[in-house]
Amino acid sequence: MIRTLVVDDDFRVGQIHANYVRRVEGFEVVGRAATVAEALATVRALRPDLLLLDVFLPDGSGLDVLRQLSQDQGEARPDALMITADHDMSSVRAAMKLGAVGYLVKPFGSADLTERLTGYRRLHDRVDALSRTTAADQSDVDALFSAARPPAVPRSPAKGHSAHTLTAIQRAVHTAGTALSAAETAERTGVSRATAQRYLSYLVKEGSVRLELRYGTTGRPEHRYRIAR
């Protein structure tokens, strides 16, 4: 389980985010904090793997939390996903320089956070697997750097395609962790198999989804789809 600490000065918002995290497979909420001082003390006491970290805190900034933990703990510092209403580019750049694994601007929904957490879990698992090897090849490196990114959806869907359905289809493929058939995609998104097939074919043409052929002992190969890297 990825042990997560939620840091937000708004009790109600922090509770909502904690509930979002609890719904995502592989994550548990080990604590909550509302200030810089409380966040630092809780990290030192509980040693979480991941912080959901607001920028605006009563006694400072979430960026101050990252700076202090980098000084105190170095490589052992927990990862941080920024969740904040601060969309100033100076804060975004600072978070990147301080090693944040993502930056999610409020307000956002459960699906947005789930997508980021699923990507982080994928990154966490890949790092854990590769830590047992002595060297990584280029494909391993590329996979690590892309693992936590949400999928890119074509900005202007082709005529006859709904942006909402397109996003749902791609999110289903992105979060599956394995290649999906059109029928499995349809089941996950609530659309018909024919609709799922049409959108998957479009995403393959756009290059954001990859088609794989699975050959059985007889008959035509099964078409399966996974997110393109």
Rank of each mutant, 00 (worst) to 15 (best):
R3H: 10
T4C: 04
L5C: 07
D8S: 01
D8H: 06
D9E: 03
D9W: 01
F11D: 12
F11L: 15
V13M: 12
Q15H: 10
H17Y: 11
R23T: 12
V24R: 01
F27R: 02
F27N: 00
F27H: 04
E28F: 07
E28C: 08
V29R: 07
V30H: 01
G31A: 04
A33G: 07
V36R: 01
V36H: 02
A37L: 05
E38Q: 14
A39F: 10
L40D: 04
L40N: 12
V43I: 02
V43Q: 00
R44T: 13
R44W: 09
A45K: 05
R47D: 11
R47M: 12
D49P: 01
L52F: 10
L53V: 06
L53M: 09
L53W: 12
F56A: 08
F56L: 11
L57T: 01
P58W: 14
P58S: 11
G60H: 14
L63N: 07
D64V: 10
L66K: 02
L69Y: 11
L69W: 10
S70I: 06
D72H: 11
Q73G: 08
G74E: 06
E75K: 11
E75I: 06
P78Q: 00
D79S: 08
A80G: 03
A80L: 03
L81I: 01
I83C: 04
A85D: 06
A85I: 06
H87N: 11
M89A: 09
A95S: 02
A95C: 06
M96D: 09
K97V: 13
K97N: 06
A100F: 05
F108R: 02
A111L: 07
A111K: 08
T114L: 09
E115S: 13
E115Q: 14
E115V: 14
R116M: 14
L117E: 00
L117K: 01
G119E: 00
Y120A: 05
L123T: 02
H124V: 09
H124Q: 14
R126N: 07
D128F: 05
S131H: 07
R132W: 06
T134R: 06
T134I: 10
A136C: 12
V141I: 13
F145A: 07
P151M: 15
A152R: 14
V153H: 09
R155A: 14
P157A: 03
A158C: 06
K159F: 15
G160K: 15
H161N: 12
S162F: 11
L166A: 09
L166S: 10
L166C: 13
L166M: 15
T167I: 11
T167M: 12
Q170S: 10
Q170D: 12
R171N: 14
A172N: 01
A176L: 04
A176P: 05
G177F: 12
T178H: 14
T178A: 10
L180D: 01
S181D: 00
A182W: 00
E184Q: 14
A186S: 00
A186F: 00
E187A: 05
E187F: 09
V191M: 05
S192E: 08
S192A: 07
R193S: 13
A194D: 13
A196N: 03
Y199H: 03
S201F: 07
Y202Q: 03
L203G: 00
L203H: 05
S208Q: 03
V209Q: 00
E212D: 07
R214H: 15
R214S: 07
Y215S: 04
G216T: 12
T217D: 05
T217M: 14
P221M: 06
R224A: 02
R224V: 07
R226H: 15
